[in-house]
Every structure is written in structure tokens, then in C-alpha cells.
Amino acid sequence: MTTPLPAAQGGPRRPALRRHLAELGAALLALAAMLAFTSYVRHPPAAEAGPADEAGPAVPRPASTANPCLRGRVMLTFDDGPDAHTRGVLEVLRAYDARATFFVLGVKVRAHPELVAAEVADGHQVENHSWDHPHLADLSAAEVRTQLADTQAAVVAAGAPAPTLVRPPFGNSGPVVHTQAEALRLREVRWSIDTNDWRGRAPADIRDAVLAGVRPGSVILLHDGSRESGNTVRALPGIIEGLRERGFCTALMRS
């Protein structure tokens, strides 16, 4: 017959000892977590540098901002802003010391005049893209005049020079639009490379659409005012680097 061990030698006290050790371990873990949290609050990690909106990863630091015109000029143009991704576009352009032309909507200029002011301050061109993006050819002469004239006024009120170019939404124009544009001293312009970035294309596909079709004098259609413009921001460094590697300089559109 087995004789029971005295309590002092461990029988019934072993579960209590294990419980005390577990409680001590939990307390040490809690203390470590509290110290880590205190350190995080006092010394939070540095924020990653990059666009201040939803544009995506940090803007790269190019090895060079040289903009040689060995093969000719090309024009980067952005439609439908200013909007949430405009700051991201501006940050990339600033990093590469590149200039672009922004075809803005009057209704968005009224809502975000500070973004138009930022475009002008960085040396970009601000032009007319109508008030709220209708098919201008479907409107009366008075309606077309209002669409264009009100946008002119909004751009000037935001601190930019009066536009001298107009890009009709959808490229949709006609005799009435021509007449009203000319009355406001606006020259109609289109594009030669449509990236279809507003359709939600991947950044690499947007970049490749530009680089596959670029020629001297190309006018590249991009968007800073669509829901998918975050991909445009992500594509932009590769577009600029690819153009410059091929000897094309990025330039403003001529009025």
C-alpha cells in the first residue's frame, strides 16, 4: 500500500504552485505589453513619406530630374479634377520636376480652389473642361456658354490665369460649341494617346499604353478626378521615367 506524501512535500500543493506560476507569467506579460504601448505613444513610428491622399505608395526619389528633348516634346494632361488624387499627382510631378496641363471642372474648382492654386504654384497649366462634364454638343448655345464661362470665372477666382484652351468632355463638340468657345477666346484641343485610366486599369497597363504609343508631340490623356485615379498616380513615375529614357521631354501645352 502506498503511503500518501505529507502536504509539505508536494502532493495537494502542486496544482496551487502551478496556478501561482501561471498568474506570475501573465502579470509579466501584461507589464511588458504596457511598457511597449507606453514606448509607442512616446515615440510613434515615423509616417511614410508620400501623397497626402489615397494615391498609394511613397513617391520615389528619382536619380535625376533631367528632362532632355532629344526626340521631342510630349504633353501630360489630366482631366476631371481637382479631386482627391490631385495632390498625389502633384507630388509625383514635383519629385520629377515635370510640368503638366490640368483640364479642370468648374464645379470642382469651386469646391477645391486650393488645389488649383497649388497647380499654378508648381508651374502647371490650368485649362477649361466645362463646369460639370456634360456632352456639350447636346446643349443649347446659352447652356454651352454658361458651362464654359462659369468655369473660366471659377479658375480665375482660384488664382489661376484665365484658361485659353478647352477640352470638351468626351471630345464631343460641334458648330455651337466652336462658336461659344471662340467667343470666350478658347481653343479646342483633344488628345492623341488615351490611356483609359478611368476604367480602373492597372498602373503597369496605364504606363505601357503611354510608352507603346508615344511620338513627338503626343498629348497624353490621364485623369486626376476619377475614382480610379489612384492607379494613375502609381503609374506616373514609370510614365515619366519611360518617356525621359526614350528622349522625350514633358512640357506644357501651347495656347
Rank of each mutant, 00 (worst) to 15 (best):
R167Y: 01
L184K: 01
V189C: 06
V166P: 15
V210D: 02
N172W: 14
P175S: 12
E188R: 09
D197G: 01
R190E: 05
N172K: 13
A183H: 11
V177F: 06
G174Y: 03
T164A: 09
E188I: 04
P161C: 06
F170L: 00
G174T: 07
Q180G: 07
F170Q: 09
P163W: 01
V189D: 02
T164F: 04
T195I: 02
D194S: 03
A209P: 03
R187E: 12
H178Y: 14
E188Y: 02
W198C: 00
N196F: 15
L165A: 08
N196D: 06
R185K: 14
P175H: 04
R167P: 04
S173H: 11
A160Q: 10
G200D: 03
D208I: 04
A162R: 12
A209H: 07
V189R: 13
I206A: 08
S192Q: 11
L186W: 07
P161N: 02
W191F: 12
T164Q: 09
W191M: 11
T179W: 10
V176M: 09
F170W: 11
T179K: 14
V189N: 03
T195Q: 06
A209Q: 14
S173E: 15
R199H: 13
P168S: 02
R187F: 07
V166S: 11
V177L: 10
A160T: 04
R190Y: 07
I193D: 12
T179G: 15
Q180S: 01
V210Q: 00
N196Q: 15
R190I: 14
V177I: 08
E182I: 06
P161W: 13
W198D: 05
D205G: 06
I206T: 01
A204R: 15
P163N: 08
P175C: 06
G171D: 04
E182Y: 14
G200L: 03
P168D: 03
P163V: 05
G159H: 10
G159I: 02
L184P: 10
Q180L: 09
T164I: 10
H178G: 14
V166Y: 13
S192E: 08
W191V: 04
R201Y: 14
R201I: 11
N196R: 15
V189S: 11
A183C: 07
V176Y: 11
A183G: 08
G171Y: 02
S173Y: 12
N196I: 12
P168Y: 07
I206E: 00
A181L: 05
R199Q: 13
P175T: 14
S192F: 13
P169L: 03
R187T: 15
